[in-house]
Nucleic acid binder design. Structure first.
Lengths: 218, 218
DNA sequence: AAATAAAATTAGGCAAGACTAATTTTATTT
DNA sequence: AAATAAAATTAGTCTTGCCTAATTTTATTT
């Protein structure tokens, strides 16, 4: 049986793997979870014992086939619950992540599939992330960010890379949602800040970090 | 902050209090939860410190006003989720309790109220237990069974008293669900068997035990 | 290459929440 | 009332999952 904490580590490793494709180190996991590296080392041993990950100093942490399956299922549940919270219970964009973070751990063999069906088999969650299907397959993840747009270029918001409520509330405040059109007016070479126009409105300046957190389609 | 374990104890105490109205002893709690009495004593201290219960050797365990509020909210969440699982996700009667047992611990200020609204403010859960309202008030528990109906009387199935899969599968086979209309045609005085008509269909005979397991509204 | 910095690991500890075993208190029988 | 049984409590232990502090290993500078 997999514990709540183990599930959170798996999910974190899965996310780091998807995000960067780079070597996943204990420190990276610790930072991502807000835990101490020593705790991460403990958990790496547990997950290795359970054959959910492999750890090698050279390669870093890697999910085993089983680990990938488990992690994908957690992500599936998380994203399905997000759709439910937004569409059925009327929550806002920035509220659903934290609740889904709890709901994703509810264990029942058929729950995800039933929820999926009830929601009409959605392809993407409200953050624009693809929802893994029952067989583990999922649509392609968007990877181009606002920071990749050429100066003068136009794009459309399709998803968010950062799901902290701070970021989501900031988006809300700026009036940015899925589908919002953004034009990149200028890139400040000093710190790579971005001057943008949201839905054709007046220019606003956002940080590089912001730009890298917003996934877009050109 | 109240922990998962504390919530489970609170709920257990609440149930014992509702069920019997008798003195609630550590042993009774231990039996009900399948825990060791020593563990219960530990938790009694914690809950007392948090002012959620009072404990007195003479009076046993009693919920404080705050304890009652908290327990009622947990029960509210549990029963609302049961309705959701049955009505929206198509689970069977006998599957919903265990899942709701997990879902009831999801903490969010507005979740219960939103779910309540989404479900159309149900009065009762599928086991016939009343769902506490947001203000803590609740209807009376269903207690009339098919066996209480007068000969010739018409009634509507509102809940089940017995949740064994044998019974539930039998109901399935007979085509009886929540809302099904039943007319009591005849009561066999020999063994109190009941001749009934399900949704106006042809007569069928069921046992007294069966009649006493089906909660109805006249 | 040596020095320094960063990352990883080990050792030891803590709190929650369960347990067992032993003891004390309370209740019930004889 | 004494003996016995049952219930309650205490003491000490275990596991999970986190921590800090110290140490070792690895990477980066100088």
């Amino acid at each position: 049986m997999i514990t709540l904490s183990e599930e959170n580590y798996l999910k974190c490793i899965y996310r780091l793997w998807q995000d960067k494709g780079q070597k996943i180190t204990p420190t990276a996991i610790a930072e991502s979870l807000g835990n101490n590296p020593a705790s991460v080392v403990d958990m790496i041993r547990k997950l290795t014992d359970k054959q959910l990950i492999n750890y090698d100093k050279k390669k870093g942490v890697e999910l085993t086939t089983q680990g990938q399956k488990d992690a994908t299922l957690i992500v599936r549940r998380h994203r399905l619950w997000e759709v439910f919270l937004l569409e059925k219970l009327g929550y806002h964009w920035d509220e659903i992540h934290d609740i889904a973070e709890e709901l994703e751990h509810i264990k029942d063999a058929t729950l995800a599939d039933r929820l999926d069906k009830f929601l009409g088999f959605p392809e993407y969650d409200p953050h624009g992330d693809p929802i893994p299907k029952a067989n583990g397959k999922m649509a392609k993840r968007y990877s181009t960010t606002l920071a990749d747009v050429k100066t003068g270029g136009q794009c459309r918001v399709v998803a968010v890379k950062d799901t902290t409520s701070q970021f989501l509330q900031y988006l809300q405040k700026l009036g940015i949602n899925i589908g919002t059109k953004i034009q990149l007016i200028e890139r400040i070479s000093f710190d790579n800040s971005l001057v943008i126009s949201i839905d054709g409105a007046e220019h606003k300046t956002v940080s590089q970090k912001f730009g890298e957190s917003l996934l877009i389609d050109m």
